[in-house]
Nucleic acid binder design. Structure first.
Lengths: 206, 206
DNA sequence: GTCTATAGGAGGATAGAC
DNA sequence: GTCTATCCTCCTATAGAC
């Protein structure tokens, strides 16, 4: 294991290079997915933006859908990791923290939002176990916090937990964020504060 | 004007037929736009659904974008008419009524939501005076109600009116509505009540 | 203005050399 | 695995007869 370690090291290095390229592809796809959506994004564009030939991209991902799905899986894994590493806290505080984090991602253009519309990508993702496992994992975590926060009287207990969950998910693709950003009247911190307030405290005065 | 009225009547009838066909095209486009979005909708599909040849459709609208823009203009005009005919009432009540109406349209699949993403359609609409005039008209009306409701202490006065306006507009493309509908656990009235509650009262308990 | 038929082009995917 | 070059399908848009 000592003398013939050169070869394994070389292979590992090569594999790392491949992995790095694949990461670059996914990251670029993720960005374009966030910018223009699945239908408007072209594979040519992704390849050009990464700086490789389209055929090379197709060695990594067998279809445009696979590529997009990989990007979505990555976001989901990122969310899982974020939740796992989140310092303990009160359920309501955790939910607020996660909502804010989600909006920050969206504002930075790092949130490839799944088209709400009918899309072939949708079916692909539902059939993707990596994505679905991640989604269920995240939903379980958030769902537990939601129910705890409701039990503690911090979240409106009249709302079904599933409605609260979806409302939080929807913050990841909230057009209000980009509209306010386009307006240019407020910085990102102000925008997030406003949307956080309307989400948790509501539009009606308290 | 009495004797030669046959000819004008004939022309008017012909024009009515044309108008009716154009209405059918726009309505179909509107529905497909709501279902699949601009990019995924095809002109073949619209023509087939209306029951005419694609070339005939292109006699009415010179491009796919024009067609989609016409559908968006129609929705905007519908909103203008709705606001114009709304019985008078307290500003806060008006806002709630309009929000509910918007969600009902969305749930019925009659709300062709403008893609939030970068789209050629976006530029087209911004350049379309009919659309922009309608948008400004609607925004002025809602904006006045928002400020009045804030002055009366019914809407959170810490939120800029523009943020409240955008939040209301966003109800027209809220994915929470369709997610809850897909879940099948609640009827449309319940769904609307839940989203209305989370929008106005917020997720946090009161 | 409506049709059938087709041009024209974009974009997803592949062949085959290296 | 990466490239260049190419295929092929789908979709927007138009030509031309009626």
């Amino acid at each position: 294991m000592a003398m013939n370690s050169a070869s394994p090291a070389k292979v590992s290095f090569k594999a790392q290079m491949l992995q790095a390229r694949e990461d670059a592809i996914i990251q670029t796809a993720s960005r374009l997915l966030a910018e223009k959506g699945f239908e408007a994004m072209t594979v040519d564009e992704v390849a050009a933006s990464v700086g490789i030939a389209k055929a090379s991209l197709y060695k990594h991902f067998s279809s445009k859908e696979d590529l997009a799905a990989a990007a979505m899986v990555r976001v989901m894994q990122r969310a899982q990791a974020y939740l796992r590493d989140l310092p303990p806290g009160a359920p309501m505080a955790q939910l607020r923290t996660v909502a804010r984090w989600t909006m920050e991602l969206k504002l930075r253009g790092e949130m490839p939002s799944l088209p709400s519309q009918n899309s072939t990508l949708r079916a692909k993702l539902i059939a993707d176990t990596a994505y679905m496992d991640g989604l269920i994992d995240v939903s379980d975590c958030l769902g537990a916090w939601i129910e705890a926060a409701q039990a503690q009287g911090h979240i409106n207990a009249d709302l079904p937990a599933i409605a609260v969950l979806y409302t939080l998910y929807a913050r990841a693709c909230d057009p209000v964020l980009e509209f306010l950003k386009m307006g240019g009247q407020h910085d990102e911190e102000q925008i997030i504060r406003m949307v956080m307030a309307s989400c948790f405290e509501g539009l009606a005065a308290r």
